[in-house]
């Protein structure tokens, strides 16, 4: 709990800086409006205007918070297409779009983590894979995801695969890498003495893996899963951009930029950030519980 105060302080400072930036960023439009109306703009009127524009260059924090609230709770509770009135999520709410992105993220993260662990096991146990896989894994991450994402979408679309799977594949593409790197390191964490000990028991390769390498790798696994799930979310959002902005947080970002809806863009950004933070926190919780049960309180 003693961590809360510094975090709140930093957050308060950031919000203050943000508010301070809102006035100069949006004043041009406010002054143009006043000049056309032939009015003089007092400073207080300027501040009030820059904080409440329809399409500000930089929306004020309370506008973003208001939009987040309206496009989640209010929309679902009272909206014509909201959950309360129709029994299904409204396609105008961030809950709906967040879920679309989240489902692709989770699927991609699951596949990516499994693939990453499998590759790491291969690299640690097989000399040929050790020499060949890692350079390719690194090369895969040097290709800009923005360049390769539309290709994957288009190719998969051509063979009739649309919707969740192509997005999940792009999430996989980004999320397997930290898991490979972390797990190779983790599975190699046991020192020579511990491996010798296993040899004196004539332990099989499978036993060495299950009893020594896998438990040793646990702290590394959780650290890389945290990176991987954030990367998976980025992958899912990027994957939504070339699909024509149908659904998902990426679609909200894209349609927001089409129509100059900066408040919508920012609230989608914050929704993504909150989603990522919650998922990382969830993995952190699982990590704490697991390591505590293993006697390795982190």
């Amino acid at each position: 709990m003693r961590n809360v105060l510094p975090v709140l302080t930093v957050t308060a400072c950031l919000i203050a800086l943000w508010y301070a930036a809102v006035v100069p960023m949006n004043q041009q439009w406010a002054q143009d409006q006043a000049r056309r109306a032939g009015q003089d703009l007092s400073f207080s009127a300027l501040v009030a205007d820059t904080m409440s524009q329809q399409r500000p260059r930089l929306p004020a924090p309370h506008q973003v918070a208001q939009e987040l609230w309206n496009s989640t709770v209010v929309e679902e509770m009272t909206g014509r297409r909201g959950f309360m009135n129709t029994g299904s999520l409204s396609n105008r709410s961030l809950i709906y779009h967040g879920w679309v992105t989240l489902s692709a993220t989770l699927l991609g993260f699951a596949i990516g983590s499994a693939l990453g662990i499998a590759l790491a096991v291969g690299i640690v146990h097989n000399r040929a894979m050790d020499a060949s896989v890692m350079p390719w894994a690194i090369a895969s991450q040097t290709i800009p995801i923005l360049a390769i994402a539309p290709m994957i979408i288009v190719v998969l679309n051509a063979v009739g695969i649309t919707g969740l799977i192509p997005k999940a594949i792009i999430s996989t593409y980004l999320s397997f890498f930290p898991v490979v790197v972390g797990m190779v390191k983790g599975l190699r964490a046991p020192d020579q003495m511990q491996l010798d000990l296993m040899k004196t028991y004539s332990a099989s390769g499978g036993q060495v893996f299950a009893k020594l390498r896998w438990p040793s790798a646990m702290p590394y696994l959780f650290a890389s899963l945290k990176v991987a799930i954030a990367a998976a979310l980025v992958g899912a959002i990027v994957a939504e951009l070339p699909t024509g902005a149908v659904a998902g947080l990426g679609a909200r970002l894209l349609s927001g930029s089409y129509y100059g809806q900066t408040v919508q863009i920012w609230s989608a950004l914050f929704a993504a950030a909150i989603l990522a933070a919650s998922m990382v926190a969830l993995i952190g919780l699982i990590q704490r519980v697991t390591l505590k049960r293993m006697g390795m309180a982190a």
């Binding site: 004196t200 438990p215 293993m294």
Partner: peptide
Amino acid sequence: RAYGYVFQAAGLYPWRT
């Protein structure tokens, strides 16, 4: 499994009691 071996360091697994 004719012998037991004790190393310089105890080398106990921290995740096991």
